[in-house]
Amino acid sequence: SAAVPPSLPPYFIKGSIIQLADGELKRVEDLKTEDFIQSAEISSELKIDSSTVERIEGSHTSPNVAVVQFSVGEHRAQVSVEVMVEYPFFVFGQGWSSCCPDRTTQLLELPCTKLSVGDVCISLTLKNLR
């Protein structure tokens, strides 16, 4: 199989074993929106935020890098992240999506759809600790 670039974390490779907050083990390609939501509900520190894709641009530094701008949470804070084009995000109700799904499937064998403006991704923030 193809070598995974060092910049891509190993847990996105198809077949990787993921432990949910309740201890259940699932393969990365089998994860559902509910798995993330329920895990965050159990977590004492993390909460799920909705992050809407507002813009996707190429990077000046590398053709394999994209800059994705999100609008995060109810305050619609603007956050930009620079990622490899094959880096997968989890879209609510849809599953893994990336800027270049063909590359994601090729490199990670992870089934993936095209990340588009307007998609709502799962992201994490800290719960308010009192």
Partner: peptide, 19 residues
Amino acid sequence: VPVFPWHSLVPFLAPTQSD
């Protein structure tokens, strides 16, 4: 076989809170 925690798969996007 390595086991990864669920939260490592999710980007941590922390907006600056003004309140």
